[in-house]
Design a protein around this nucleic acid. Structure first.
Length: 898
RNA sequence: GGGCGAAUAGCUCAGCUGGUCCAGAGCGCCUGCCUUACACGCAGGAUGUCGGGGGUUCGAAUCCCUCUUCGCCCACCA
């Protein structure tokens, strides 16, 4: 069958079928508890139901899949639990845009019908993103897929709400919240993105009521003055002490407002006097409360000036109102000055609209008690962050935690489980809808829904059946690792830790791995609005899922960003594709040769050497090259496994890449070619070793490139067609394989071959033309190695003859090698004497410089006495070998000159 | 304003706990090759004051300080 493999790998022809096969075989389910040790559980950050796949998903889900596949192969019971998020605002916005195309608003439809529309939309397109994840090769257990608005998760949400309420940790009240005038809802602090902007600060004069002058206040939002109900100064501020208690006649509004003293006012900022707008600023709200100042909400929900302001301003947009207010102040001559002022302005994280601080009646969670254990877990080290520095952000946020505004004035979400009786004023907080008030009157449910994150902060247990005590909950809580983007550290990760500690009494995962962000070559985040995104599905179809995965993994050190060029997918993804193709062809070669002469004769099935090479090949049958590749392979296993373990996925990718491409393909395959067609037993040994090491490399690479490794692995003759590499046993380091002697020896062989090639290239010897080479190997290791692999050397260096010792005095090119050996290639008429002299000259200079430095180093008594003995010995060794090389070369040089 | 981080080849980046990789990879570039697995390839080659300065050390790209330039998180100075 391997003969059918085409010379170019076409992922599109392989990937979908393999994925279906994995899924059909149920390879992604955790099985029935057969694995060793604690289960590996990784909670998928639920993508928004409405979202379509972007590179950010491509990165995060690839990382999660790599870890999942790695642990699965190590034999652990593995659960990667997927789900989708109902994404309150985001989804509501999408559907509102849809009905806007029909010229309608949600208010035209009414709440009930609108909700139906959203549900219909979600049912229709809700699993798009999950389908797309399959194209990446994501090995999640789809049978357990959750949705944050499903009944079982809703039940958990209500349970949590009621429990927190009963503990006094949920309360309702009028406070300044962040209001999005476009989404028409309150937002939590985390949902507001602060952005530094160059704005202005206006200094306004407010006339004193008694006509004795004025007091100057500074503001960045002049329109809010329409809601001013006081002016505050610091009680210690001598400048204003006399004015406290006086009244100000508020311009434009003509309202009398008091000057009050409040220690929160910073005398050094602005004029030292603050206009107080209790309904539109958190600090002003506090000052207003302390000084019994009225709060006047001057804005409509859409942030237009309301009927609370003079009629000429009513209905103006807030920014238009700002202009008008400034204009009128100017006309009145009350503008003292205008300065440019850089400050942070809040924007809605969903629609980028400038957020308005606004006094509003909302539900809140008291966070301090919840934060305490969650912070403690970090402090003790039970909760670990990768990279570590991210932990500090977590700590700071926890330490400065503020209450969480959880009510949203939306229609899509978990309805707040609170009912009111308009008859007797009773408020009922309940898990299930009560039928009637105790007074007999009908009840009215709170209009608001909960913040989307109020359901997602529970998924580490709610998705496993909580509040019921399910088997899943027992088996899979707490989980192991949480992998996500740093952007949702506070939205989600921190809150999950809090919820886990509070409701389950245990942190929900012990490791938080925050990977980097996908950016373009200008280091800008990829986003729809910038138009710098990359469509992962396009990448999959052009380069293959494996190429995409390899690219993001190899391009990402721990916690660093992945840079991709949206305008040049070829540059970004071809290395991954090329690697897959290289692998494919190495596989093609190995597979097509596994048969060997014997099988070719019989034409029978190809099953030459099943099992481990140590079982079917005696150690003494191994050639130097065999021992070398086996040892290199073993080193790769150790290195890559450790890298996976430490989340250094790029290092794992590099280790396998280097092994497969440089060691296996460039050297080992080239080395065994003649053996395969040589004597029967020698060929069998090579085949066994090649198959074994190649298979091992496939396994090590499988977490990163699952498709092609599976495709090739399945074709290995020793494999059952029904077996899958994804559940094959992770290769273990083998002490017998470790062979430093063979590694050193083969490195000498490589060095010799490269040296000849260099000379050939230097003198432009035609590739087809053979040359002779004379090697002087004084070192024992080199001698042995060159003898053992003389055939390899002759072939790979295209030598007609390889002589050991003897005449190296003629006209030719020379090179020195390590372990006291040297190379001479007689070139006769081809040799350009001048060129060779120059070449040797520069070589000599290079060596001389090294020797000089080395002598200085060893001449330094401090070094000799203080550095560890082995280091000193090594350095001495270096010096002597360089000296010898120098001597040999100097001799050659002399002859050329003479 | 508080906290954290980064500056290494033309480009994008590795380099973990200071001493063999006389500093690495991929891409790009130069030279020669369709060598019976692969031109998505093979062989060879060029390119770096490891941001500047100082310090610790026998020894620093790797640790400390400082300067410069970028970046991230947090923040109710109106």
């Amino acid at each position: 069958m391997s003969d059918e493999l085409p010379p170019q790998y076409t992922p599109g022809a392989v990937e979908p079928g393999l994925y279906r096969w994995w899924e059909t075989k149920g390879l992604f389910s955790p099985g029935q508890g057969k694995g060793k040790g604690a289960p590996f559980v990784i909670m998928m950050p639920p993508p928004n139901v409405t979202s379509i796949l972007h590179m950010g998903h491509g990165l995060t889900y690839t990382v999660q899949d790599v870890l999942t596949r790695f642990e699965r192969m190590r034999g652990r019971v593995t659960l990667w639990l997927p789900g989708t998020d109902h994404a309150g605002i985001a989804t509501q916005n999408v559907v509102e845009r849809l009905i806007a195309q029909e010229g309608k608003t949600r208010f035209d439809l009414g709440r009930r019908e609108f909700e139906d529309r959203v549900w219909a939309f979600v049912r229709e397109t809700g699993d798009t993103i999950l389908q797309q994840l399959r194209a990446l090769g994501a090995s999640a257990d789809w049978s357990r897929t959750y949705f944050t608005l499903n009944e079982d998760l809703s039940r958990a949400v209500r349970e949590v709400f009621v429990r927190l309420y009963e503990k006094g940790l949920i309360y309702r009240g009028k406070y300044i919240i962040n209001w999005c005038p476009r989404c028409l809802t309150a937002l939590s602090n985390e949902e507001v993105e602060k952005e530094e902007v160059d704005g202005k600060i206006w200094w306004f004069r407010y006339p004193l009521e008694d006509g004795s002058g004025s007091i100057t206040v500074a503001t960045t939002r002049p329109e809010t003055m329409l809601g001013d109900t006081g002016v505050a100064v610091n009680p210690k501020d001598k400048r204003y002490r006399k004015l406290v208690g006086k009244q100000v006649r508020l311009p434009l509004v003509d309202r009398l407002i008091p000057i009050v003293a409040d220690s929160e006012v910073d005398p050094k900022f602005g004029s030292g006097a603050v206009k107080v707008t209790p309904a539109h600023d958190p600090l002003d709200f506090e000052i207003g409360r302390r000084n019994q100042l009225e709060a006047i909400d001057i804005l409509t929900p859409e942030a237009r000036l309301s009927e609370t302001v003079p009629s000429r301003f009513q209905g103006l947009d807030r920014f238009e109102g700002r202009k008008q207010v400034v204009a009128e102040f100017e006309k009145l001559g009350l503008v003292e000055k205008v300065e440019s002022h850089r400050h942070a302005v809040g924007h809605c994280y969903r629609c980028e609209t400038v957020v308005e601080p606004r006094l509003s009646d909302q539900w809140f969670v008291k966070m301090a008690p919840l934060a305490r254990p969650a912070l403690q877990a970090y402090v003790d080290g039970t909760l670990r962050f990768i990279p570590e520095r991210r932990g500090e952000e977590y700590r700071q946020w926890m330490e400065g935690i503020r209450d969480w505004c959880i009510s949203r004035q939306l229609w899509w979400g978990h309805r707040i489980p609170v009912w009111y009786c308009d008859q007797c004023g009773e408020m009922i907080v309940a898990r299930e809808e009560p039928t009637r008030c105790s007074c007999g009157a009908p009840l009215r449910q709170d209009e608001d829904v909960l913040d989307t994150w109020f359901s997602s902060w529970l998924v580490t247990f709610s998705s496993l059946g909580w509040p019921d005590k399910t088997k899943d909950l027992e088996r899979f809580y707490p989980g192991s690792t949480l992998v996500t983007a740093p952007e949702i550290l506070f939205f989600w990760v921190a809150r999950m830790v809090m919820a886990g500690c509070w409701f389950m009494g245990e942190i929900p995962f012990s490791t938080v791995y925050l990977h980097g962000t996908v950016r373009d070559t200008q280091h800008r985040k990829m986003s729809k609005s910038l138009g710098n995104g990359i469509d992962p599905l396009e990448v999959v179809s052009r380069f293959g899922a494996d190429a995409l995965r390899y690219t993001v993994i190899s391009g990402m050190a721990v916690g660093t960003d992945v840079i991709l060029d949206p305008n040049d997918l070829e540059t970004s993804f071809s290395p991954g594709r090329n690697f897959a193709n290289k692998l494919w062809n190495a596989g093609r070669f190995v597979l097509s040769n596994l048969g060997g002469p014997a099988d070719r004769r019989t034409g029978g099935p190809i099953r030459p050497l099943a099992g481990d090479y140590p079982d079917v090949v005696k150690p003494e049958e191994l050639t130097l090259a065999d021992r070398w590749i086996i040892s290199r392979c073993n080193a790769m296993v150790i290195q890559a496994t450790e890298a996976y373990d430490k989340y250094r996925l790029n290092e794992a990718a590099n280790a396998v890449y280097h092994f497969l491409w440089s060691d296996f393909a460039d050297w080992y395959i080239e080395q065994i070619k003649p053996r395969l067609y040589g004597d029967q037993r020698g060929g069998d040994v090579a085949r066994a070793v090649a198959a074994r090491t190649f298979e091992t490399a496939l396994q090590l690479l499988h977490p990163i490139m699952p498709f092609i490794t599976e495709a090739l692995w399945k074709r290995l003759p020793a494999r059952d067609v029904e077996a899958s590499i994804s559940i094959s046993a992770w290769p273990r380091p083998d002490r017998r394989a470790h062979d430093p002697e063979a590694e050193r020896a083969f490195a000498l062989v490589q060095e010799l071959v490269v040296a000849v090639r260099q000379i050939r290239a230097e003198y432009g010897i035609e590739p087809g033309k053979s040359v002779r080479a004379v090697v002087t190997a004084s070192g024992k290791d080199a001698q042995k190695a060159f003898q053992a692999e003389s055939g390899t050397i002759r072939r790979l260096a295209k030598l007609s003859e390889l002589r050991f010792g003897g005449d190296s005095a003629g006209v030719g090119a020379s090179a020195v090698l390590t372990d006291r050996s040297s190379l001479f290639v007689p070139l006769g008429e081809v040799l350009d004497l001048e060129k060779e002299r120059a070449r040797l000259q520069s070589e000599l200079e290079r060596l001389a410089k090294l020797i000089e430095n080395q002598k200085a180093k060893l001449g330094n008594e401090q070094f000799v006495s203080r550095a560890p003995q082995e280091i000193v010995a090594k350095e001495r060794e270096k010096l002597s070998s360089w000296n010898e090389q120098h001597a040999v070369l100097a001799e050659k040089h002399r002859r050329l000159v003479g």
